[in-house]
């Protein structure tokens, strides 16, 4: 008798769980307009909504005075697992007449970058961040090697 009881219980629980699953998919089928998450990308290029944490490429932040926060410490270059970043430094002369290390050129190889975010985490002054642009295709590979600091830019006051 216990066997029969178990058997019937199994059949009923199977039916119940099957109906539960079908209920969910049935709900989706009826409400597919409301629930759909697909973005029809080339059509909605203007109103495209990307997730907050989407990582497209590394950019350097510049303020309105064309000043960035990069000290040229090369922490990002060291953090990069596949040599995407190459930092060329120079020596500035401070008003006191001392020599100070500063950024000359921030070379970024987009073609090598895996968007791993390690350089952003390594940066002590939050000078670089991940942008959400993703349409990177070009006809010439050289165009993927970018210089991130804008020409004529210099470091902000007070950033060590």
């Amino acid at each position: 008798m216990a066997f029969l009881k178990n058997y019937i219980k199994e059949v009923f629980s199977a039916v119940r769980s099957s109906l539960k699953g079908m209920g969910l998919t049935g709900y989706y089928a009826l409400h597919h307009k409301k629930e759909k998450i697909t973005q029809q990308y080339p059509d909605n290029r203007d109103e495209l909504i990307l997730p907050e944490r989407f990582r497209g490429e590394v950019v350097m932040l510049h303020d309105e005075n064309n000043e960035h926060a990069c000290t040229g410490c090369t922490a990002c270059e060291l953090a990069c697992p596949n040599a995407t970043i190459k930092i060329i430094t120079k020596f500035d002369i401070t008003p006191e007449g001392k020599k100070k290390k500063a950024l000359d050129t921030f070379v970024y190889h987009l073609e090598l970058c895996t968007m791993c975010n390690l350089c952003i985490e390594a940066c002590p002054t939050d000078a670089i961040k991940m942008a959400q642009t993703f349409e990177h295709s070009v006809f010439d590979r050289n165009k993927l090697t970018k210089v991130l600091n804008k020409p004529g830019s210099k470091i902000k006051e007070g950033i060590e």
Binding site: T25, A29, H32, K36, I37, T38
Partner: peptide, 10 residues
């Protein structure tokens, strides 16, 4: 179409 709707696709 049915499969797409059930999987919240288009």
């Amino acid at each position: 179409k049915v499969s797409a709707w059930m999987q919240v696709r288009l």
